[in-house]
Each structure stands twice: as structure tokens, then as C-alpha cells.
Design a binder for these strands. Structure first.
Lengths: 245, 245
DNA sequence: TGCCGCGATAAACCTAGGTTAAGACGAGCC
DNA sequence: GGCTCGTCTTAACCTAGGTTTATCGCGGCA
């Protein structure tokens, strides 16, 4: 049920049995979302956060002219909007990119965690800070990387995040996004994403076919993306001292 | 001393006298930084966070080829690296853009806050989530806005953030950055920032002279930047219900 | 079985912003 | 008073990526 969520947490820190129980007992309703369905509308006050169990979601913001920027992708095990606990409403929408299943976690239960479990509170705080680190890496992509490097960095990031939760091997994973979705992540057009994917394939770095990504040469992919995974904070390999006992 | 920090917090939520005392007693050494000095080096484990009292700092990441992306600007009253409390080391550098004064806050003291002051903890958690909201807005700029809109949005954001802490009037403020600094914030070149500033001045939207920014037409500036200040979470005007009592 | 609509692919053309280079200006300094 | 260095400004030129348009393939469905 929430195994992927626990796997994600335990990739960074120790979670005690007591804390695990606290997480489990904080879960509310389980909900399904259709592809393209709005999961959390921008600016609307929330009383719960959404833990993604299956599928892909994203956060996005848009401009008057309709141009849309996806600011982060969410995979199974992620909270899509843990930050709504402190922000109360979001500055962006969250939508399902594929059919999804999610557990709703009432803010009242999260608040109880902040009052009774300081270490777990710090861990969840860490988790929103990790989202911010991903935002920063994407700012770097959007501001400074070429299209080729942007895609290389994005695929490198996803391979790691999905592997942590058991949804990717070392070299491949399902990536049920359209080229337009990818374009909206990386500030490009679908046309240019298409060109760039062809280019990456010609160079035998990755193949993206049938909504599945295959990494043909990870070392070269990382190099092409100027990718440094340390922003994903996995060095503690499961027992990061970062958060104290 | 930390009035600007308190002003920033109180622009979003109530801070009790007891909490204010807890903040004051958590302060450690006061340090000065020269312009361009590294305040927090990337990847180095930290045992304190840095509360900016005076001057401008920024977070940035860079690529092998030397291209640099500033991911956020910090003004007086901001914590430059509150997130190092949970992340322990940063995925980016923090440097002083101008001469700065800052209070160092030992993580041990922050941890005490998480153990004794759940509401204040949520408020500081909120504060790192606000940084993330700013990152998202910059992702939107970097990915989708034109150069003109990027600068308009940046100036609009800074006017508000500086006004909260008493460093901007409705229409002007000191902005001691070079055009190259601005370029590195918005993923442009200094040459194009220069062109775009000329353009904004011709249209009587803003003037940037002598490191001082003057807004000539705020309504048009906001419109040019497609700027919506709600991502700065100021609606509670000082008493946001967001964080509970 | 044939239609519909979305997504992938591709070619031709265009432009916002990058690159390069060269003065101008001013603050600190010897 | 002249020098140096950083910043600003401008012009000329270039290119990565956007735009537009069209075709193709395929899954769902009536």
C-alpha cells in the first residue's frame, strides 16, 4: 500500500516502527484519479495532502497566453502536495498525467505528527526541501542547459527516483508521458523534444518508445546532461545522519 | 537586529512573544561577509543556518561549462539556508552579492525549536516552502516567459519582498545587483538584459539606474510580467490562518 | 470496417535571444 | 593626474529552438 512511500523515506533516513505506525494511522480515504484530472486546484484551501500510490502526477503553473510550465513530476511514493500542509493553498495546480491511485492524508493528522513526532516531522520537512532541490535543478536546466542536456538530466533524475521505489531497473522504466508533457517540463516545444529524442537515439544514449525509456549508455547520458545526482540526497544510502535519531 | 526577520514572519502568521523569545535565544554569532564571499559552500555539511540581516545574497548552481544559474535571491530578513537544517548539506552554493551582515543559528537550537515549539516549527517549515514557491515561479519565468516578462516579474517580486521588510516603497528600492547578476537570475545574457532594460524604460515601466530600481507604472509592469503575487502568500495580511494558533 | 482524434514525425521557415567585439564611463588607487 | 578594472552600452552577426503545416500510425469505437 504505502510501501513505495516508505521506500522513498528510508532511502534517506531511518523510519522507526513507531513512526511507520504513525504514518499508517494518518492515512485517510484512498482515491482514484483519471488521466488529466485535477488533483489539487491552485489557490483552493486544502484540508489534506495527497500521497501518490500509483501513476504519475505533476505540478504546473501557466501564463495568460496558455503556455504551461510543469515544475515537478511526481512518481509513486511521493507526496504531491505535502507543502499544502503549511501553505494551506497551492500556488500551482496538481494534475494526474496518467490514471492514478492516491491516499489522502488529513492535515489534522499531519499536525498531530508535528506535535508528537519531532523526528518524523523533520523527515517530512526534509521531504518538501527535497522537492525544492528538484525545483532548483530544473531551474538550472531551464536557465542554462541545452535541450539535449535538459532531456538527459530529466531522464537521469527519473531513473533514480523510480529505481528507489522499485519502478525502474538500472537502465529502463515505464514513462507514460507524451512528448508534449516532456516539453512542458523542460521549457521546450513538442517538436523540439522530438528532434532532440531522435538525436539522443542516434547517439545511442537513450531510446523512448512505446512510453518506455531505455538508457543505452548511462555514463554518457549523465555526461550529456551534466548530471550530478547529489541534489537527490541519497548519499546516506538509507541511514542519512542528516535528520538525527 | 532581527526585526526584518520578524517582519517577514509576521507578514504571514502570528508570532507569539514566547516564540519571538525562542527565536532570539537561538541566535549565535553575528558575521559580516564581503561581496562575492561564499557564505555556504555546496555539499559541505553545515551545523548552522544563516539569517540574513543586511545586504543581498543568492543561491546558485552551475554547469561544467561555467554557466551559472541563480535560483533565488535573498533579502534582509530571509534565512539563506534554513533548508540546511533538514538537508544538512546544500545542493547549491550561497554567496553574498553585496557586503552582508548575518546571524548564524546553530542547528542544535533549531532542533530544540522543533521539539518545543510545534507552531513555530510549522512556521519555519512554511518559510522553506515559500522558498520553493519562489523557485516554481522562477521555473515558470525561465521556461515560459519572454525576457521582458522575466524582468518585469522579477522586479515585481522584489518590490513586494523588500517592502515587507521596510526596504522598498511602493515604487522604488535599492537593488545593488549588476546586469550580469540579473541575467544569471533569469537565464539571459547581460547583453540581452541591457537591451530589455532599455526597452522597459522606453515604455515607461521601470528605470534601473545607479543600482536603484524605480517602478514608473506598476499596473503595466505586473501585466507585462504576467505577475500574480499570490505565490508569495501574503493574503493573510499578517494573520494567516494557515498555520493554526 | 471505417471513422475519429491524439500523438509522433518531419520539413521549411522564422525569430528571440546569444555571441563577439569594441567603446564609454566611473570609482578606486598609485 | 593618469591607470586599471569592472560595468554598461551598442552594433553586427549568428544559432538554438520556435512556428507552421502536413503526413502517418494507431487505438478506441460505432
Amino acid at each position: 500500500m504505502i510501501e513505495r512511500h516508505l521506500a522513498k523515506l528510508r532511502a534517506r533516513a531511518t523510519v522507526s516502527a513507531e513512526e511507520e505506525a504513525a504514518i499508517r494511522s494518518s492515512l485517510g480515504e484512498i482515491r482514484e484519479f483519471a488521466a488529466d484530472e485535477v488533483v489539487v486546484p491552485a489557490l483552493k484551501v486544502q484540508d489534506h495532502s495527497t500521497m501518490l500510490l500509483d501513476g504519475f502526477m505533476c505540478r504546473f503553473k501557466d501564463l495568460r497566453n496558455g503556455k504551461r510550465q510543469i515544475t515537478e513530476l511526481h512518481v509513486a511514493g511521493d507526496f504531491a502536495d505535502l507543502h499544502s500542509f503549511t501553505l494551506k493553498y497551492l500556488d500551482h495546480d496538481v494534475i494526474a498525467l496518467t490514471p492514478c491511485r492516491a491516499a489522502l492524508v488529513p492535515h489534522a493528522n499531519l499536525r498531530r505528527i508535528t506535535e508528537q513526532f519531532p523526528h518524523l516531522t523533520r523527515l517530512y520537512w526534509f521531504s518538501t526541501n527535497l522537492d525544492a532541490a528538484i525545483h532548483r535543478e530544473w531551474e538550472l536546466s531551464l536557465g542554462q542547459r541545452t535541450a539535449r542536456a535538459r532531456l538527459a538530466a530529466l531522464f537521469s533524475e527519473l531513473q533514480i527516483r523510480l529505481q528507489i521505489v522499485g519502478l525502474a531497473s538500472d537502465t529502463s522504466f515505464d514513462l507514460p508521458l507524451t512528448q508534449t508533457d516532456i516539453a512542458e517540463c523542460m521549457g521546450l516545444t513538442n517538436v523540439h523534444v522530438n528532434r532532440t529524442l531522435r538525436n539522443l537515439k542516434e547517439d545511442r544514449l537513450v531510446e523512448f518508445e512505446g512510453r518506455r525509456l531505455t538508457i543505452l549508455n548511462k555514463a554518457e547520458l549523465w555526461r550529456a546532461g551534466d548530471f550530478d545526482p547529489r541534489y537527490l540526497y541519497l548519499d546516506g544510502n538509507g541511514t542519512a545522519p542528516s535528520l538525527g535519531p
